[in-house]
């Protein structure tokens, strides 16, 4: 009897240890950005491509206010409501006290400076594909933005999704480096792939998710329910969208569809960022989208 109990205890310990091991946060190695000097000017382009302000600026912020990354916007989802944190350079309430390595780990691995997992409402599964150089540039640019002393608010995420430690398992399943579309691409479409699959994190809304909230890459960019509740995020594969590359690029800079309708909702806010990119980048996104498999 004692032996059985002992065996059970050992098994339980092993289980707990296994859980601990499988769910441990895995920050980006410090060496990842070593020797790279960040360039704030280049970082601005990364900033617009990555759409940081779309979530981290205050709702309906425009102009200079769009550069104040005070957080506070609420994002309802089937798993709970997430509140965007303050990522302005404020020392107390923002990320002013962070090191560059901590920033890179947060963006590319979803691991915070205290070693906690971030919820994947923050699209680090896309940013994981970013070039370390771009993240160094982004950090340099974000240091130049205005600070805000708005205090952070807690997310409203219920059991069991609120247990951050479990996100370690989630990441084991869904945090993947490497491209989703692997086929041979033109140089322009490959740049587009980088902008869509990494920085632009388009798939986070345009690709359906499985029951655990992981992206179903077999149905890449084929549209999904709107996490905020109403309507659907559209299918943007070529046969469904049916727009030419020029029409896509024009839409991403102006918000006007080929029928002269105007983007609204989340996409309107995405365009507020994308419209600041050089035309060549928007054309690259269009080249990638029109090259997607049917």
């Amino acid at each position: 009897m004692r032996r059985i109990l002992l065996s059970l205890a050992v098994l339980a310990l092993a289980g707990a240890g296994g859980y601990w091991w499988l769910t441990r946060p895995a920050p980006l190695p410090d060496a990842a950005l070593a020797g790279i000097e960040g360039d704030a000017e280049r970082g601005e382009r990364v900033f617009w491509a990555a759409g940081c302000a779309g979530c981290h600026a205050a709702e309906e912020a425009e102009g200079d206010a769009f550069l104040v990354l005070a957080g506070g916007r609420r994002f309802p989802s089937p798993f709970g409501t997430f509140v965007a944190p303050n990522i302005s350079p404020d020392d107390d309430h923002g990320i002013g006290g962070w090191s560059r390595a901590e920033f890179a780990s947060a963006v590319m691995r979803g691991v915070g400076p205290q070693g906690t997992h971030y919820f994947p409402a923050f699209p680090y599964t896309s940013y994981a594909r970013a070039e370390p150089r771009d993240i160094a540039d982004l950090w340099a640019f974000m240091r130049t933005l205005p600070a805000s002393d708005r205090p952070n608010e807690a997310h409203d995420v219920g059991f069991p999704f609120g247990i951050r430690r479990n996100l370690g398992l989630w990441k084991t399943l869904f945090l993947r480096e490497g491209w989703v579309i692997e086929g041979p691409l033109s140089e322009q479409a490959a740049r587009g792939r980088y902008l869509v699959e990494a920085l632009g994190h388009c798939a986070e809304c345009h690709t359906p998710r499985n029951a655990m909230g992981g992206l179903d890459t077999d149905r890449w960019l084929t549209g999904a329910p709107n996490p905020a509740g109403d309507g659907r995020v559209p299918d943007i594969t070529p046969s469904e969208l049916g727009w030419s590359a020029d029409e896509i690029a024009d839409y991403l800079s102006s918000g006007f569809t080929p029928e002269f309708d105007v983007a609204g909702g989340a996409m309107g806010e995405v365009i507020d960022s994308l419209a600041n990119l050089p035309e060549a980048d928007l054309a690259a996104i269009a080249a990638y989208l029109t090259a997607l498999p049917e």
Partner: peptide, 10 residues
């Protein structure tokens, strides 16, 4: 106006 008052489909 579309942002808040029309269903998201674009």
């Amino acid at each position: 106006c579309h942002d808040n008052y029309r269903v998201s489909d674009d």
